[in-house]
């Protein structure tokens, strides 16, 4: 990770981080000001901590602005967006399948195969099979041995 020399152009990614921190500080302070103080004798209500956190985030945001101009935030290295997208697709299909009632096994199968793909596996069908087997074992283990309920779908009703 290389640090840029001071005096150069500002680091836009770092500025974005700073803006994010300041925005978060704003949201926290705004939500605290919108809330009413509850009852109590502590004199410090539920909003005090919010203001402390908001102030801290704001100061850190400003410090990050300074760091961005001084080049103190490390520059990230090159990365492969495809791999990240594949894993995110895996996580999204996990959430999606479970939300629409597709069940645990299908969700886990997709997560496994897509993640393996992100790590360069070409045999997608094989990985689907491995994922399904893993999901089935986990499903049976959790529901039968530990009597915990997992999301149900068409496949789960077969067992």
């Amino acid at each position: 990770m290389e640090h840029a020399h001071p005096g150069r152009r500002p680091d836009w990614a770092a500025l974005l981080i700073a803006v994010g921190l300041l925005a978060l500080a704003g949201v926290v302070a705004w939500s605290a000001s919108a809330a009413t103080a509850g009852p109590g004798y502590a004199r410090i209500g539920p909003n005090a901590a919010s203001y402390v956190v908001a102030a801290g985030l704001a100061i850190l945001g400003l410090a990050t602005v300074v760091a961005a101009f001084r080049g103190d935030i490390p520059k990230p290295e090159a990365f492969d967006p495809m791999a990240v997208c594949l894993i995110l697709a895996g996580l999204l299909s996990l959430i999606g399948v479970i939300s629409v009632g597709g069940g645990f096994i299908i969700a886990v199968t997709l997560l496994f195969a897509l993640t393996a793909r992100a790590f360069g596996r070409a045999a997608f069908l094989t990985d689907l099979g491995i994922g399904a087997a893993l999901g089935l074992i986990a499903y049976l283990g959790f529901t039968r041995l530990l009597s915990l309920s997992l999301p149900q779908g068409p496949l789960e009703h077969l067992f």
């Binding site: 886990v108 997560l111 496994f112 195969a113 990985d127 491995i130 986990a138």
Partner: peptide
């Protein structure tokens, strides 16, 4: 590939 895919499955199963 299988190690990390397994880790993600493992992590989400625990959460679920």
């Amino acid at each position: 590939p299988w190690l990390y895919a397994g880790i993600l499955v493992f992590a989400s199963v625990g959460t679920i």
